[in-house]
Design a protein around this nucleic acid. Structure first.
Lengths: 232, 232
DNA sequence: CGCTCTATTGATAAACCTCAAATACAGTGG
DNA sequence: CCACTGTATTTGAGGTTTATCAATAGAGCG
């Protein structure tokens, strides 16, 4: 596995480090423990006592909430440079969600005590955290509204666009979702079933909006998809 | 209008003041501007530039997100002692939601500059805010999961219980929702229609779980309702 | 007492889920 | 390189849930 991390890319993506000099960051990083995760491994489970915070360096995490009946709602995907569980560990609470590695991943971990020390040394961290949490609150509130008011096909469009913006990569074909994303995953993210997602993607492929295969989706006509997502 | 506010009650409800001595609070309060709102007045609108933070002293605020098609999703109700818009004003952002007075209300308002000064004087405010925001993130994520996975009747039960816990008052009849709550409101909070809410409440009244009339709901058998909400 | 807003209830329809069966695909080990 | 096996995907048929529409009743207010 390639061990090189593009830290400057990490810096720019992470809301954590707003207002910090770049030369202070290696210091902060040095207190963390770097660790590799195989695909599918669970980093932490909903309800467990929170002991660590994570920043993704490579790969991706799927953050979800599980329902008793076995179904899951995907809350968000965590990309390189982004944090998860920063606050629950600070507050000494339980994790409110479950995090799982999508594909081979790497993360930087801090335990509770280290986080508290860092917060004392760099008080700005609390303010930055506040910004991150508020952004996520906003995101989920918007999706909550959409889930209440919009039809499935429109919601699938919004979901795909959201994931595309956060994790898309330009290719000659169009914008590729850069990790394994099954119909079931997209359904869990949207709040529908894999069958409905499958039918929808077939329709879109006919229209030339997307190209999809096993656990892989490429948006070939983002403009059309955006227009559909907005007007229904 | 009665102008007496039970400040000790406010203190105990507000996550803002964790770790403060009670005698410092009047100081914080004195920087705010106290103001009365008539029923139905909009305090701030989604998309407006955020200029003020609010703490409810009397009455209640309805915080919602509006969809283009006119429908609204109620995000939460703000009770006496609770804050809203604390962070968006700090960050200089737009309000992500709309807030409206439910019944005659009173709020303490701080403008952006005052909030920043307060934060400097009492750094603990940032940490307390973090706790509040995380709690709300948790709440909406849980409701998001429920909206995805549960049936309408179960969701209405959960909604009513949630509102009951936050704004219920014991009476001889049972636990009364202590403000005007129409079928439409409960529908907007749950993500359904007023018709479905009405039918559901009729059914529950037959079972002896609730008693409802115009814009008024009393939970007469909370235990049965909880059990139903959990098992479906 | 009339006006307006809210609630109730029935009938109908639409959206979407569930189930079933067939097919495609990726990775594995011989 | 190929057959094999376990997933993932597709697609159709049918059923359920819940929204929508329409009409009526009830409550509060001036």
């Amino acid at each position: 596995m390639n061990n090189q991390i593009d830290f400057s890319d990490i810096f720019s993506r992470s809301g954590w480090f707003v207002g910090f000099e770049e030369d202070k960051l290696p210091d902060i990083f040095s207190f963390g423990h770097r660790r590799v995760y195989e695909s599918g491994v669970t980093l932490f489970r909903e309800g467990d006592h929170a002991t660590k915070s994570y920043m993704v360096l490579k790969g991706r995490l799927k953050v979800s909430k599980l329902h008793e009946d076995g179904r899951e709602a995907i809350v968000r995907y965590i990309n390189p440079g982004e944090m998860t569980a920063a606050v629950s560990v600070l507050k000494g609470k339980d994790y409110p969600v479950t995090a799982q590695a999508i594909g081979p991943s790497e993360a930087l971990e801090w335990d509770r005590e280290t986080m508290l020390n860092l917060m004392n040394t760099y008080p700005r961290i609390a303010i930055n955290l506040l910004g991150i949490v508020v952004e996520r609150l906003d995101d989920i509130q918007t999706r909550y509204l959409e889930l209440q008011t919009e039809r499935v096909e429109q919601r699938i469009a919004r979901s795909l666009l959201r994931i595309m913006r956060q994790s898309g990569r330009k290719t000659s074909e169009g914008i590729l979702i850069d990790f394994r994303l099954s119909r079931q995953d997209l359904a869990d993210y949207t709040g529908t079933t894999l069958y409905t997602v499958s039918r929808t993607l077939s329709r879109w492929e006919q229209k030339g909006w997307t190209v999809s295969s096993r656990e892989r989706i490429v948006v070939t006509n983002p403009h059309a998809l955006v227009s559909f997502a907005e007007t229904g």
